[in-house]
Design a protein around this nucleic acid. Structure first.
Lengths: 303, 303
DNA sequence: TAAGGTTACGGCGATCGTAACGATC
DNA sequence: GATCGTTACGATCGCCGTAACCTTA
């Protein structure tokens, strides 16, 4: 047994049990991969993969049992490398952030900018995806940390830190009836609505707010992306319900935003990362940076 | 990085950081070990071991940080091998039991006998040691399971299962004054006492029983071993306080045993094993066997 | 028949062992 | 000077790549 065989099992998991894909990922030829797997199975004395003919189609019972040990080993191996790299030079490295569009555009710019100043040597990869995919990316180590509002609290393998709280806002073109007068769910519901897709950016809280009333919103457009929503609001398709911080007073001068904190429960954006995954120092600092930005934001909201 | 390097770190931990001892354990020459360590440290980019001259004397800060990852990897690697061996043939293997003398002699014979019948192919290693050492043996994987009464509950890395409860008994030669009349701590304390060493077989409960009374026992002989205590009781040196199940009505016909359950709190013998350590099927069955024996014992005690 | 997996074989590189050397108690 | 660790060098074994072959969608 050796570490590249362990690595191979991990890669096979993430590539539909395809030896050829695995070979590609490992930058060696397929035959080598094939042989390594054979050697590994021979050493254990029992097949790890279920086969249809020659093709691998899944794990055997044995495979299912050992795969979590494999994951543990791979994680620990990466931790060793990360810890060492951190120790040698904690100003160099890669920061992989997985987040949703809203966070990337309306919350992260500030913390990322200050982080960049402190750590010019760290390459930042930002990947946008749905909250569900974000969690998956953490597990496959395609991301070190995830920032999002939904889903993340359910996974026991994750450490989840609350980051900041925010409220939804309704956005309408200037002169729209909703730009004046008292707001209520009833009044909102009388217009066609544009808001986030299910599972995105606090959409669940909108549902919760409505659940008790028995009313339904006429959501004519759902998007993962605030800018898409704003665009169609500008075109007069309806009223947008977006995250409060996604309204930019400068850029969105043609739109009116009104706070919905009294109508829709507040949403909590969280920072999540794998429990057993060692985070480099700079990543820990980036988290601090985000918490700081969150704090400043909440102060400015009070004014 | 490879698995034998990881293994090397573990072996160095357990052998005073001596490269030559490590080489011996790994069945390779010292120079090979030396080079592997150099390669490993070079790959990480920073030394893992503190050196005095050429000699290794301890871990660096980096070393301390990675050593727990190393332990994780080694454990997971062993788990893979154990799981596979279990899968190939769950009737063959090794069962390493660490326990104290009292358990080995007075509790384990029955479960071990029935286990042996079911699994004639499993080699049984039984090692006797102090409770403290038992725990250490679990951590260094010199034992799979430990059975003992003291200490074991304090370690969060362990899974601890209660096995059975028992009481102390006083043993005296026939015709000894204590063989008749009412028993009390005062009366006990008026004789020279022979009992278990500190940290062994419920000794702590004897201390607890006395603590509130302000009395002190005159313990003229402490031993880890019930048979030693009995031997000196037979010689008339004093009265023995031993575990109730350590009195054998057949062998100890020349001695009188009297229950102390009203005077000394009951003791709990536990089964302990490492949380992250995979136990072969037969070991799990051995645990069942012990729990069964414990149950039967408690029933026969009721009669 | 193309794509995926296995088998055979040759070459290269990693790692071991021997041996000589260096340092430390 | 005995023990422990390092360095140098030759030999071996493991692993990869090429290539031919087998199998299934």
């Amino acid at each position: 047994m050796n570490l590249s065989q362990i690595e191979l099992l991990r890669i096979l998991q993430e590539n539909d049990f395809s030896l050829s894909k695995a070979a590609e990922k490992m930058h060696i030829v397929q035959s080598a991969v094939s042989r390594q797997l054979q050697l590994f199975e021979a050493e254990l004395g029992s097949p790890v993969y279920e086969r249809q003919g020659k093709r691998l189609v899944g794990l055997t019972t044995l495979g299912q049992r050992i795969i979590e040990q494999v994951a543990t080993i791979n994680l620990a191996k990466n931790n060793i490398q990360t810890i060492a790299a951190d120790y040698v030079d904690c100003t160099q490295g890669v920061l992989q952030i997985a987040t949703t569009h809203t966070q990337a555009k309306y919350f992260l710019p500030k913390p990322i900018l200050s982080f960049r100043k402190k750590y010019p040597g760290v390459r930042i990869y930002m990947v946008e995806a749905s909250p569900e995919q974000l969690i998956n990316k953490l597990h496959t180590r395609n991301a070190d940390i995830a920032i999002c509002t939904e889903k993340v609290a359910e996974d026991i393998e994750l450490i989840v830190k609350p980051c900041y709280e925010w409220h939804h806002a309704v956005v309408v073109p200037k002169n729209h009836p909703l730009s004046e007068g008292e707001l209520s769910l009833e009044r909102l519901a009388s217009y066609p609505i544009l808001t986030y897709s299910f599972g995105f950016t606090g959409r669940s809280n909108i549902e919760i707010a409505l659940k008790n009333t028995g009313m339904e919103l006429d959501v004519i457009l759902s998007a993962a992306d605030t800018d898409v929503i704003k665009t169609y609001v500008r075109l007069g398709m309806g009223v947008g319900i977006i995250a409060g911080m996604a309204y930019d007073p400068l850029v969105d001068q043609d739109l009116i935003a009104r706070d919905l904190s009294l109508l829709i429960p507040c949403s909590r954006t969280k920072i999540a990362y794998l429990k057993n995954n060692y985070l480099p120092l700079y990543t820990q600092h980036f988290i601090d940076e985000m918490l700081l930005a969150a704090k400043e934001m909440s102060i400015s909201n009070w004014l």
